[in-house]
């Protein structure tokens, strides 16, 4: 009960102090706001890039063209052999017969349908294929080479080089944003700490008097920590609103896709709220850390 009253007082004082030191509070809040906007952009980007990578990885398929005159028996032998290759995702293997490919083509356009309908039985020049996915994309090339050595395989097509490049680029983007975010959070914590130090030096007297009349260090620090918490929370408002409205707007105006139908953006619904929670959390932590660091200096004799 006693502790509760002390907390109540600290919360009241913490909020009051935000208003009392208005200009410095605004400085701290802007500081947090700017950082959190950048952090928000970084988080939105890196999560999406991460998502792109996952989607692309899931989508990379090697198309194994077989000899046109291959028999059914040879096909099932070949399938077994491909499945024995270590890096092959055995569950993903799909066989498409000449006939199936023909039907698929016919469905895509009328022109093709007209041409292909004139082909006679046995005249189908298409090749049956296996669609193969791998477990580890970085070993795609060597896996493809191994499949290529098998009997009955004519040629293999995959996104030669392009896929790997895209993925390494994405990995790099992710790593850079991560470092930038970390650095920013640190810099802001120190900036906040110094700004709050300014508000505290103007309240040196107050702290001195609190100590004089017998307030414990914890009790003296508490309102400042709560003040930091509020500054962090206030600083997070604009970035959170920006994230919620901005990202939804961005998502809708691109209809959820970027560059190609494969590269889909993360759906806004739980995502933006998750990011908002992260932003509020970072704001609060940075504010609390900054202010408790700042006040520590004044609590020593």
């Amino acid at each position: 009960m006693k502790l509760f009253r002390l907390f109540g007082r600290s919360i009241r004082d913490g909020i009051k102090s935000v208003g009392r030191n208005f200009s410095l509070s605004i400085a701290s809040i802007s500081c947090i706001t700017i950082t959190l906007i950048i952090v928000a952009l970084a988080i939105l980007t890196s999560y999406n890039v991460d998502n792109f990578t996952r989607l692309i990885k899931k989508d990379v398929t090697a198309v194994v063209f077989l000899k046109s005159d291959i028999t059914d028996e040879e096909v099932s032998n070949l399938e077994k052999k491909i499945k024995e290759i270590p890096n092959v995702d055995t569950e993903s293997i799909e066989f498409e017969s000449k006939q199936k490919i023909l039907e698929d083509f016919k469905d895509t356009s009328e022109v093709l349908q007209n041409i292909m309908s004139s082909w006679e039985e046995g005249e189908n020049p298409l090749k049956p294929t296996f669609l193969v996915k791998v477990l580890d994309l970085t070993k795609l090339k060597s896996t493809v080479n191994e499949i290529n050595k098998l009997d009955g395989v004519e040629v293999i097509k995959y996104g030669e080089g392009m896929v790997e490049k895209l993925i390494t680029t994405f990995d790099m983007i992710e790593r850079i944003t991560f470092i930038v975010v970390l650095a920013l959070i640190f810099v802001t914590a120190f900036l906040i700490s110094n700004t709050i130090k300014l508000t505290i030096s103007s309240r040196k007297r107050e702290i001195e008097i609190m100590r004089l009349v017998g307030a414990s260090n914890f009790f003296i620090r508490l309102p400042f920590i709560i003040e930091g918490l509020f500054l962090g929370l206030l600083g997070a408002i604009i970035p959170i609103a920006g994230t919620i409205y901005g990202y939804s707007f961005f998502y809708n105006s691109f209809e959820g896709k970027l560059f190609s139908p494969i590269i889909r953006l993360i759906e806004p619904s739980p995502f933006i709220y998750l990011v908002s929670i992260i932003l509020a959390g970072i704001g609060i932590l940075v504010g609390m850390f900054g202010s408790s660091r700042a006040v520590r200096k004044f609590l020593k004799i």
Binding site: R205, E206, E208, I209, R211, L212, V213, G214, A215, S216, N217, L299, K300, I301
Partner: peptide
């Protein structure tokens, strides 16, 4: 210790020349 200074301050009242009011 520094963290326990409040214990003695609660037993002592202190008055200065410059009042030290907020």
């Amino acid at each position: 210790r520094n963290g326990n200074v409040y214990k003695i301050r609660r037993k002592i009242g202190i008055v200065f020349q410059d009042y030290k009011l907020l």
